[in-house]
């Protein structure tokens, strides 16, 4: 009969809607339930808590550098000489893979603070080496200049500058 067929069809679509709604709700619930299991692997609050390292600059003579650890990574703190500053500024307009002015990379020209991790694949570059008077990464041959900019080699970017601030003339806080 047309009526019963119609009723049957209506019943089927009501049933299908019930199944669809329940299934969708169940799937949404499962996804929401899965999230904490994924998110718990993200850095925890204590890791994220801004950790700072204070560096005493008074023991670093001109033309030398120290390496400190910040958030588990090495940070180069270099007391640049006049020559190094001049060379860095002179090359501001050179052919740079990652163009950046030296003045944009330092707060005070005589102090260069950079994360000592090669932007290629993460090795620690060696200071006072390479063809540009700065750093050289022995892993795949990247050369960085006296401003830490990539000049030759496979690294795509200049050495990264962390957040830092001078507390006074002899102390800088990184992070």
């Amino acid at each position: 009969m047309a009526t019963t067929q119609g009723e049957a069809a209506a019943g089927r679509s009501r049933r299908d809607f019930l199944y669809l709604a329940t299934g969708a709700l169940g799937a949404a619930g499962a996804a929401a339930a899965a999230w904490p299991f994924v998110d718990q692997m993200n850095p925890s609050a204590d890791v994220l808590a801004l950790s700072s390292t204070e560096v005493d600059l008074s023991g670093i003579p001109v033309g030398s550098a120290i390496t400190v650890v910040w958030r588990g990574k090495p940070v180069f703190v270099r007391h640049r000489s006049e020559d190094e500053i001049a060379a860095a500024q002179r090359d501001d307009n050179a052919d740079l893979k990652d163009p950046q002015r030296d003045a944009d990379r330092v707060q005070r020209p005589e102090w260069l603070v950079m994360i000592g991790v090669c932007t290629h694949l993460g090795c620690v570059p060696v200071g006072e080496s390479g063809d540009f008077g700065g750093w050289f990464c022995p892993c795949h041959g990247s050369h960085y200049d006296t401003s830490g900019r990539i000049r030759r080699g496979p690294a795509p970017e200049n050495l990264w500058i962390p957040e830092y601030a001078f507390i006074d003339d002899a102390t800088v806080r990184i992070g």
Partner: peptide, 30 residues
């Protein structure tokens, strides 16, 4: 997932559980 954060050492175990409760994302829930 709890075992990713728990430290099975008598000197650290209790603290690692509190670490889970307070610092790990959704740690208290897990």
């Amino acid at each position: 997932v709890l075992a990713m954060h728990f430290t099975p050492d008598s000197r650290l175990a209790f603290d690692s559980v509190e670490q889970i409760m307070r610092n790990v994302n959704y740690g208290w829930l897990l």
